[in-house]
């Protein structure tokens, strides 16, 4: 297994390098110049062209693109993602500030996804073809089909604007500093409620469908028939025999959620003014803030590769039939 992991990690190096290289050149070759922020038409002011040239030099934009690329790779190898054009601060610090906000959101969303998705999938499968199953099937298909941004706006209008139950956006209340520790904790939960629900419920709908189908497949397996024939209670058959096997692919799906955990949810973060990685990336793309674009892309690429590896390894860990070790010679 260790050999397999090392092999996969080594193979992922050129993959990640390929992704970040493509991103680097696409971003640089796309129309738009980061120095245009000095030339916004509404400013109507004379900006010193020498300063613009100085800024180009400072950020290495005066160099040929291949030189910029090599410099960037060297710096990243040292853990230096450079300085943001817009914020004029180290990218590392800016990303470090955004990550906790994204993690709060995505971890809770995944938990909600798992809680609702798996539970409803099991209920649906066990009660196959009943009214409950049909209701859950139609409901999950509808939720799955609803665009997240629309659902978010509708929930804001209903629960924030009309009912006033939840905040419309942001991560905390204006009087956050005056709250007790428990108050602060509850305040954060209060602000997380809507974005987590929107993110989690869409995932849960998909998970529920997947869980239902997988469990139904397993319930038709011969060993389940055998278990029933042996007189085990139905509950034991489902929980001990069927569910454990049905959950195997689900576990791998969550393994592959790693990029989502840190990559954030762009649209939802934007709608709820949530200062996470997704929103940071959108702002960076709009402002041609290359260092941030490259940092977030590199992180996403790394996490995607690691997520896939994690999924494979988890699969092997939970399913004894799967082995990445070479078969023993007889």
């Amino acid at each position: 297994m260790l050999k397999y992991i090392i092999k996969r990690l080594l193979l992922s190096v050129p993959l990640v390098l390929g992704i970040v290289t493509a991103t680097f050149f696409i971003a640089r070759l796309a129309p738009g110049d980061p120095m245009d922020m000095y030339l916004e038409p509404q400013r109507q002011r004379q900006v010193d062209p020498e300063v613009i040239e100085l800024m180009r030099k400072r950020y290495g934009l005066d160099q040929p693109i291949h030189v910029q690329y090599v410099t960037w790779i060297k710096n990243v190898a040292r853990g230096d993602f450079g300085e943001s054009f817009r914020h004029r601060r180290p990218v590392r610090d800016i990303v470090a500030e955004a990550v906790p906000y994204t993690l709060q959101l995505t971890i809770l969303a995944l938990l909600l996804d798992a809680l609702f998705g798996i539970s409803l999938g099991i209920i649906s499968a066990v009660k196959q073809y009943t009214k409950l199953d049909k209701t859950l099937t139609v409901g999950s298909l509808i939720v799955y089909a609803i665009p997240g941004f629309w659902l978010a706006l509708m929930l804001i209008m209903l629960f924030s604007v009309n009912l006033g139950w939840f905040p419309t956006s942001q991560t905390r209340s204006m009087n956050y500093e005056d709250l007790t520790m428990i108050g602060k904790f509850l305040d954060r939960l209060w602000h997380l409620a809507l974005p987590v629900f929107v993110l989690g419920i869409a995932g849960a709908a998909g998970t529920a469908r997947y869980m239902r189908n997988r469990l139904l497949e397993v319930l038709n397996e011969e060993y389940i028939v055998a278990a029933r024939a042996r007189g085990f209670r139905e509950r034991t058959v489902i929980v001990k025999h069927a569910l454990r096997n049905a959950l195997i692919p689900i576990v791998t799906i969550y393994g592959m959620s790693l990029p989502f955990l840190l990559g954030g949810a762009t649209i939802i973060e934007t709608i709820f003014a949530w200062p996470g990685m997704g929103r940071l990336t959108v702002a960076a793309v709009g402002g041609r803030d290359y260092p941030i674009i490259m940092a977030t892309t590199t992180i996403a690429a790394l996490l995607t590769v690691l997520g896939n590896l994690l999924a494979d390894v988890t699969y092997a860990a939970v399913d004894p039939r799967v082995s990445y070790d070479a078969p023993r010679k007889r």
């Binding site: 204006m174 428990i182 108050g183």
Partner: peptide, 19 residues
């Protein structure tokens, strides 16, 4: 849980005295 959190926290921002 959500309702309890909302009550326990601080309510909508416009309830705050300085608003």
């Amino acid at each position: 849980l959500a309702t309890a959190a909302s009550f326990a926290a601080c309510g909508p921002a416009d309830d705050s005295p300085d608003r």
